Measured scan of single mutants.
Amino acid sequence: ALNRGDKVRIKRTESYWYGDVGTVASVEKSGILYPVIVRFDRVNYNGFSGSASGVNTNNFAENELELVQAAA
């Protein structure tokens, strides 16, 4: 299972961040479909780089994520 702070690569092909590595911000335990919230260094097309207006978190299912580096 994934944990907060883990570095993960995104495998959801239609995602803006496909192939990117993000950090797990939190994992919901309530049984929702996309329980893993991942935070990225770059914002998506809703904002400009360096601006706070873009979105830099997204929810994924565990099977859409590949663990790159476990949290220390």
Rank of each mutant, 00 (worst) to 15 (best):
Y34D: 04
V36H: 01
V21Q: 02
A1Y: 13
V38I: 04
N63M: 07
N63F: 13
R9Y: 06
Q69T: 11
D41A: 06
F40T: 00
E28W: 05
R9C: 11
W17P: 00
E66P: 03
K29L: 09
E62M: 14
V55T: 13
A25M: 15
I32W: 09
V8T: 00
N58V: 10
V21I: 14
L2G: 01
N46F: 08
V24K: 00
A25Q: 15
A25P: 00
G19V: 03
E64D: 05
L2T: 02
Y34R: 14
A52R: 02
K11W: 11
I10L: 08
R39C: 14
Y16S: 05
V21T: 07
G22D: 02
Y18N: 03
G5S: 01
K7L: 12
K29V: 10
E28C: 12
G54N: 05
K7S: 06
E28Y: 08
T13Y: 10
V27R: 02
Y45M: 15
D6P: 01
N46D: 15
A70N: 06
F48T: 15
G47L: 05
G50K: 02
S49G: 12
A1P: 12
G5W: 03
F40Q: 00
E28M: 12
F60S: 00
Y45K: 13
E62H: 14
V38D: 00
R4W: 04
R4E: 14
V27C: 03
A25E: 15
S15Y: 04
A52W: 08
P35K: 10
P35H: 13
Y18L: 03
G54L: 11
G31H: 12
A1F: 11
E66L: 05
Y34K: 12
A70R: 14
I10K: 02
V38N: 00
V36G: 01
G22H: 01
E14T: 13
S51A: 13
V21F: 04
A25V: 15
Q69I: 08
R4A: 12
L67I: 07
S15H: 02
A71K: 10
I37H: 09
E64T: 02
A61H: 09
E28S: 11
S49N: 13
D6R: 03
G31Q: 13
A25N: 06
G31R: 03
Q69L: 12
N3L: 10
R12L: 06
G19D: 10
A61R: 09
V21C: 05
D41E: 14
L2D: 01
V55H: 11
Y34L: 10
T57V: 11
R9K: 11
Y18I: 02
N56W: 08
R42D: 07
I37V: 12
N58R: 06
A72K: 13
A70K: 14
Y16T: 04
I37D: 03
N58H: 15
G31T: 11
F60L: 02
G5A: 03
G5H: 04
I37S: 09
A71I: 11
L65I: 05
L2A: 03
D41M: 05
K11L: 15
R12A: 07
L33D: 13
V8Y: 00
G19W: 05
N59R: 11
V24N: 00
R39A: 10
V8E: 02
R9A: 04
K7W: 07
V27D: 01
E28R: 07
Y34F: 12
V36Q: 00
N59M: 13
S30H: 10
N3Y: 10
N3P: 00
E66D: 07
V55M: 08
W17M: 01
N44M: 13
V38E: 00
S30R: 09
E14S: 12
N56A: 07
Y18P: 00
V8N: 01
V68R: 04
N59W: 11
F40E: 00
N44I: 08
V55L: 07
G31D: 13
A52T: 13
N44G: 05
S15T: 02
V27Q: 01
V43S: 06
N3E: 09
Q69F: 08
D6T: 02
A52E: 14
T23V: 13
V55C: 14
G50V: 07
V8Q: 00
N44Y: 15
T57F: 13
A61V: 03
S51R: 01
R39F: 13
V43E: 09
N59Q: 08
T23P: 00
E64Q: 02
Q69C: 11
G54A: 09
L33V: 08
R42C: 10
Y34N: 07
S51K: 04
L65V: 08
P35Q: 11
A72H: 12
V38R: 00
N58Q: 15
R9G: 04
V55Q: 09
T57M: 11
L2F: 15
T57N: 06
R9W: 05
A61C: 06
W17H: 03
R4G: 05
E62L: 11
D20Y: 09
E64I: 01
S51Q: 11
G50A: 09
S49W: 10
D20R: 05
V24H: 01
A1I: 13
A72N: 10
E64C: 03
L65Y: 02
N44S: 06
V24Y: 00
I37L: 13
F40K: 00
D41H: 09
K7T: 08
V38G: 00
S51W: 06
D20E: 11
E64K: 00
S15I: 04
R9P: 03
L67D: 01
N58M: 15
D41K: 06
G47V: 08
A1H: 13
T23H: 04
E28H: 10
E66T: 06
E64N: 01
A72V: 13
G22V: 03
S26A: 12
V36A: 00
E66S: 04
F60I: 01
V36F: 11
A25S: 10
Y18V: 03
V68F: 04
N63S: 14
V24M: 01
G47R: 03
G47Q: 09
V55F: 09
D41Y: 06
V21P: 00
N3G: 13
E62D: 07
V27G: 00
A1N: 11
A72Q: 14
S51I: 08
L33R: 14
S30V: 10
E64L: 14
K29R: 10
V55I: 13
S30D: 14
A70D: 08
